[in-house]
Structure formats: C-alpha cells, structure tokens
C-alpha cells in the first residue's frame, strides 16, 4: 500500500470539516466578497510591552472594595426604580412629541451614560419606540447581570445623591 493515512483519518474528517464550517464567518464568501478579502490582518498596533505595563498598572492601582450593607441594596433598588420612572416618563414625552423637557432628558442621559450593563437593552427600547410590552426586553438578563447593574448604578452616584435617595426612600 503506497499511500498511508493518519490513524482514524476518516473517522475524524467529518468532525474537522464541521469545526471549520462553524468557525467560518457566515455569509462572507457568498454575499460579501470585499469584506471577506479584508479579514487577513489587523491594522492596529500597540506600544511595545504595553500588556506587561497594563498588568502592572492594574495591579498597583486597584480601587478599594466597598463594603455592602443592607442600605446598599435598598439604595440600588430605589435607584433602579427611579431610573425606570424617569425612563418611562421620557418614553411618554417622546411619544407625545413633548421632548423639550430638558431636565428630564438630562437625567435620562445621565443614567444612560453611567450605566453599562443594560444600556444596550434600553437603546433597543428607544429604537423600537417603547412597544406595548417593554418588560420582555429584560427577559434575557440573569441575576448576575442584574446585581452587576444595580451595583453600577450605586457606584456612579456621589455621596450627595446617595444621601438624597436614602432620604427619599
């Protein structure tokens, strides 16, 4: 037998082909030949030793962890309710054409800029002009994500804002 194959070549062939198929970007070759041709190299450069330096910077400048009390969770929930209320008002203002409420828009902008977890979901809602069932947009968010979001809202608030929310709720 002049030609030899690696052991189990044909047994593994199907799996290897399928692995490559899954790894391939969809549509590109057929629908987007120009885009497909651009994938080979990255035009971005990083400074020499950047990642070693980044590791050192992050090791030496860690923020202090905050101790969380029951108050933290109360404020987190209150802040989230406040966000939802402001957001609902803004959606109503948009739908009624009354968009000149600058203070309200500023508040919404503040939360949009300072939250980082469900911002995308909120953008979806704005893009879809707040359909009849906004709650469905949040179905995909698990407990981890929710707690992270609540924490982020608190982290971005200053002491005065925290005191004000504590007073209100």
């Amino acid at each position: 037998m002049p030609n030899k194959l690696p052991k189990d070549y044909f047994k593994q062939l199907h799996g290897r082909i399928m692995q490559n198929v899954h790894a391939m970007p969809d549509y590109l070759e057929e629908d987007a030949p120009l885009l497909n041709g651009l994938k080979a190299r990255s035009p971005y450069i990083v400074p020499k030793d950047y990642f070693n330096e980044l590791e050192n910077i992050l090791s030496n400048n860690r923020p202090k962890l905050r101790t969380r009390s029951l108050t933290f969770y109360r404020i987190a929930v209150a802040a989230s309710f406040a966000l939802l209320i402001y957001f609902s008002f803004d959606a109503l203002a948009l739908s009624s054409g009354n968009t000149d409420d600058l203070a309200l828009n500023e508040i919404v902008s503040y939360y949009m800029e300072n939250s980082y977890l469900i911002e995308q979901d909120m953008m979806d809602i704005l893009e879809e002009e707040f359909d009849d069932n906004p709650v469905s947009y949040f179905d995909g968010i698990g407990d981890d994500a929710l707690e992270l979001y609540l924490s982020s809202v608190i982290d971005e608030l200053g002491d005065e804002e925290l005191a004000l929310i504590e007073e209100l709720y």
Binding site: L54, R62, L65, D143, D144, E147, L148, D155
Partner: peptide, 20 residues
C-alpha cells in the same frame, strides 16, 4: 476603556455567581 473595564470587574467580581 480597558482600565475602566477592569476597575468595574474588580468592583463587581464578587457578585459574579457563575451563571454565565
């Protein structure tokens, strides 16, 4: 942005419950 990302990770990693 990467530094801010890791600061957020540092602050919140304790609340990561391994659901994802």
């Amino acid at each position: 942005v990467i530094q801010n990302t890791f600061i957020k990770v540092f602050r919140h990693i304790k609340s990561f419950k391994r659901e994802s």
